[in-house]
């Protein structure tokens, strides 16, 4: 009888403590989970957390900037003379393309603007077309075979338009190099420039995408009479 009772007590103790152990592990794990759960935090705890994380984020951002500068510095330091010459050459080529010192080829759009009366398309329309093309990231533009550079201006002429003092007459042939799809949609957007000009009597607008277009270089070197280079 005593042995039976002892066995029963033994099993009771064993099972009860097993349940206790299980509950303890469950509680430890749940508590860890709750501590990591943002939803269970108070406003004070959260604001402290946000402040700490913001400070840490600022510090890390500053470190990123420092490391980038260091990286750029070390890249420059590593470059050989030949690489430097190459880089200079590349940037000079790019500058020449942008300023129009050399002619350029590439994909883009060609816009042909016919004006049978010869007086309805004015210099402001031309400015607007150039502006629209530049907004659509045109890299080189020419009107009637003349490069539009940073100095080009349009004004009213006796018969047609004066482009930097040079007389141009319709049909206007405008060539722009850049992403053909973007340039095309910029010119032909509903209610846009082409639609407005096309509605004028005697004016006809045609816009074509082309894979290979040619834009000549500037034919007059600008004179920097008043602007001079700032030395470092």
């Amino acid at each position: 009888m005593a042995a039976l009772r002892s066995t029963r007590i033994g099993w009771g103790l064993f099972l009860t403590f097993a349940v206790l152990g299980f509950l303890l592990v469950l509680q430890f794990r749940t508590h860890q989970q709750v501590e990591a759960d943002l939803a269970s935090m108070s406003v004070d705890e959260l604001s402290v957390l946000v402040a700490t994380l913001s400070r840490e984020s600022e510090r890390l951002q500053a470190e990123v900037v420092d490391l980038r500068l260091e990286l750029i510095g070390s890249q420059y330091a590593r470059k050989t003379d030949a690489e430097m010459v190459d880089e200079r050459r590349r940037s000079r080529d790019e500058l020449e393309l942008v300023t129009g010192a050399i002619s350029a080829v590439g994909p883009g759009v060609r816009m042909v603007l016919t004006d049978t009366r010869g007086s309805l398309v004015g210099p402001y329309d031309m400015c607007e077309i150039i502006n629209e093309l530049r907004v659509a990231a045109a890299r080189a533009i020419a009107v009637n075979g003349h490069r539009v550079d940073f100095n080009t201006g349009f004004s009213e002429g006796a018969a047609g338009i004066l482009m930097s003092g040079r007389h141009i007459s319709p049909p206007y042939d405008i060539v722009a190099l850049g992403n053909p799809a973007e340039l095309h949609s910029a010119l032909l957007m509903p209610g846009g420039l082409a639609a407005r000009l096309g509605s004028l009597p005697g004016v006809h607008v045609e816009v074509h995408r082309q894979e290979q277009l040619h834009v000549p270089s500037v034919d007059r070197t600008p004179l920097f009479q008043y602007a001079t280079r700032v030395e470092d």
Binding site: T16, F17, G21, F22
Partner: peptide, 15 residues
């Protein structure tokens, strides 16, 4: 010894 054994078993099952 039984409580210790039981506790160990419970913790083991919990883990």
């Amino acid at each position: 010894y039984l409580p210790i054994l039981g506790l160990t078993l419970g913790v083991g099952i919990g883990l």
